[in-house]
Simulated assay, not measured.
Amino acid sequence: MAPNLQCIFPALHLFGVLMLLLCPSCLSDCSMFPSIAHGSYEDVSSFFSFDTVVRYKCDKGYVLVGEEKITCRNSHWSSPVPQCKALCLKPEIKDGTVSADKDQYVEPENVTVQCDPGYSMVGFPSIICSEDRTWYPEVPKCEWEVRTGCEQVLAGRKLMQCLPSLEDIKMALEVYKLALEIEKLELQT
């Protein structure tokens, strides 16, 4: 062996041992950390460890599904990369209920809306928590059913919604009653 090569090999060997001591995780092929949608990761590896450890966390409004920490050993990750799933708030249903009564739902959770007796549904009864943290399709509404012969009740209900006070409602009903009596008198003549 040439004298120059005899000096280079021990130096390379010493450099390799030094690299192993200073950066053992450099030897594993885990330099590319798997990223996740709606979340972030952090390398939490120990300085003198042969393993690469990554910790994941989700953005506000999302929940982590899977392992919070994954470890790379011998160029293989210990478990699948976790996911950040959307959280949807409980749908507000006036005059109705949802099949699973909770404060929050995780994507792609599905709930069914049911209207109270006397109310009919406007929209689709089955809704799904979607990735953008909204319900799809849109949350249905429960509207009061106006049965045949109940049109006057509906008119009275609208009147109550339009007038600001009980006195105004009484006055409007008196005027309406008077108008009906005048109409009846005119029909008789």
Rank of each mutant, 00 (worst) to 15 (best):
N4R: 15
N4I: 14
L5P: 08
I8Q: 10
F9R: 12
F9V: 15
L12E: 09
L12Q: 08
L14P: 02
L18E: 13
L20V: 04
L21C: 09
L21I: 08
L22P: 01
D29I: 15
H38K: 02
F47Y: 01
F47A: 07
F48E: 12
D51S: 14
R55H: 11
C58Q: 09
D59I: 03
H76G: 05
W77Q: 00
P80V: 04
Q83G: 05
L89Q: 11
P91E: 07
P91C: 05
D95L: 12
V98L: 11
C115R: 02
C115N: 00
G118V: 04
S120M: 12
G123V: 00
F124C: 14
I127P: 07
I127V: 14
C129V: 09
E131T: 04
R133W: 02
R133G: 02
T134V: 07
E138Y: 08
V139L: 04
K141L: 14
C142G: 08
E145N: 12
R147L: 11
V153K: 03
V153N: 05
L154F: 10
R157F: 00
C162P: 01
S165L: 08
E167N: 13
I169K: 02
A172I: 03
Y176N: 03
K177W: 13
A179D: 10
E183G: 07
L187S: 08
Q188Y: 03
Q188L: 07
